[in-house]
Computed example of a mutant assay.
Amino acid sequence: MKISAFKPQEIIISPSILAADFANLAPEVKSAYEADAQFLHLDVMDGQFVPNISFGPGVISKLKPHSKALFDAHLMICHPQNYIEEFAKSGCDHVTFHIESDCNAQEVIDQIHSHGMSAGLTLKPGTPIESILPYVDKVEMVLIMTVEPGFGGQSFMHDMVERISIVRKLADEINPNLHIQVDGGINKETSKIVREAGANVLVAGTAFFRHPEGMSTAKIDLSS
């Protein structure tokens, strides 16, 4: 699946498997797709770039046969340039990496594209938004973090909303097809806030996988 199949006016839910039942990942990702989650968010952490360790291409490749969703990888790793090919082979359709990573951002974007994947760029809440603005017309998605990356279940940082509006305005001028993704503390209430600011791809972990009324209701709550 290609991100170009989706319009930036569409509201897309990308459930983060960090909140899924790791003892039953395959059934969980299958159920997420059946609940009409178009993307599946894969938080990859190396224990160095952020203080947590999650999973890598091996796990992703095992999950790929269980979902037809777009595999949306968020690399929170120090040297993304060393692993792009492996994530392509694992079945990722899209790769987002951090501007703070130890790499040449344009070279990594080109590398991602060379493997047939769409590229995204993101930054930590404390990094100036100006650092990613030169690449808004070079990528298919910009991810705005509304928590500090590394752990799920954190509270939404309202002061990050302005970043969404800044990127949306710039995208409207130079890259109208850009998707703006938001990750961190997304629930029924905050989803409205970020959508009004211009975001269209919403990463939700706890609010999706652990919704008391099930994933289908979570999808409705987050996108309406």
Rank of each mutant, 00 (worst) to 15 (best):
residue 54 S to Y: 07
residue 85 E to I: 00
residue 83 Y to A: 08
residue 75 L to E: 10
residue 34 E to T: 02
residue 86 E to V: 00
residue 73 A to F: 11
residue 126 G to V: 04
residue 74 H to R: 05
residue 37 A to P: 01
residue 60 I to H: 04
residue 57 P to W: 09
residue 113 H to Y: 14
residue 118 S to L: 00
residue 63 L to R: 07
residue 116 G to M: 05
residue 56 G to V: 07
residue 110 D to H: 12
residue 78 C to F: 02
residue 61 S to E: 15
residue 29 V to T: 04
residue 27 P to A: 03
residue 73 A to D: 11
residue 54 S to M: 02
residue 75 L to P: 08
residue 30 K to M: 10
residue 63 L to E: 08
residue 71 F to G: 03
residue 41 H to S: 10
residue 71 F to V: 04
residue 95 V to W: 01
residue 77 I to A: 08
residue 105 A to G: 00
residue 115 H to I: 06
residue 86 E to P: 00
residue 103 C to P: 07
residue 38 Q to K: 15
residue 126 G to W: 05
residue 55 F to E: 09
residue 75 L to H: 11
residue 64 K to S: 03
residue 108 V to R: 01
residue 123 L to G: 00
residue 51 P to V: 11
residue 117 M to N: 02
residue 92 C to R: 04
residue 47 G to D: 13
residue 26 A to L: 06
residue 92 C to I: 07
residue 70 L to R: 02
residue 120 G to M: 02
residue 44 V to L: 11
residue 108 V to F: 04
residue 36 D to F: 03
residue 50 V to I: 12
residue 80 P to H: 05
residue 57 P to H: 12
residue 118 S to K: 03
residue 35 A to T: 04
residue 83 Y to F: 14
residue 60 I to C: 09
residue 63 L to F: 10
residue 83 Y to H: 13
residue 64 K to N: 03
residue 77 I to Y: 12
residue 54 S to W: 06
residue 89 K to W: 04
residue 89 K to P: 04
residue 102 D to L: 14
residue 33 Y to P: 00
residue 72 D to T: 12
residue 54 S to P: 08
residue 86 E to Q: 14
residue 66 H to A: 07
residue 112 I to R: 00
residue 46 D to H: 08
residue 101 S to G: 02
residue 76 M to T: 05
residue 127 T to K: 02
residue 58 G to V: 13
residue 61 S to I: 03
residue 54 S to A: 10
residue 75 L to K: 04
residue 62 K to T: 14
residue 95 V to I: 15
residue 39 F to N: 12
residue 26 A to Q: 13
residue 104 N to K: 14
residue 25 L to D: 11
residue 90 S to Y: 07
residue 125 P to E: 03
residue 121 L to A: 09
residue 40 L to I: 15
residue 107 E to M: 14
residue 77 I to D: 11
residue 94 H to Q: 01
residue 33 Y to A: 13
residue 120 G to P: 05
residue 39 F to Y: 15
residue 65 P to E: 03
residue 44 V to Y: 12
residue 31 S to D: 13
residue 121 L to D: 07
residue 51 P to S: 10
residue 53 I to T: 14
residue 27 P to V: 06
residue 93 D to C: 00
residue 128 P to H: 09
residue 73 A to P: 12
residue 121 L to G: 06
residue 59 V to M: 15
residue 107 E to V: 08
residue 82 N to K: 13
residue 49 F to A: 05
residue 38 Q to Y: 11
residue 69 A to T: 13
residue 79 H to C: 05
residue 30 K to P: 00
residue 64 K to L: 04
residue 54 S to I: 08
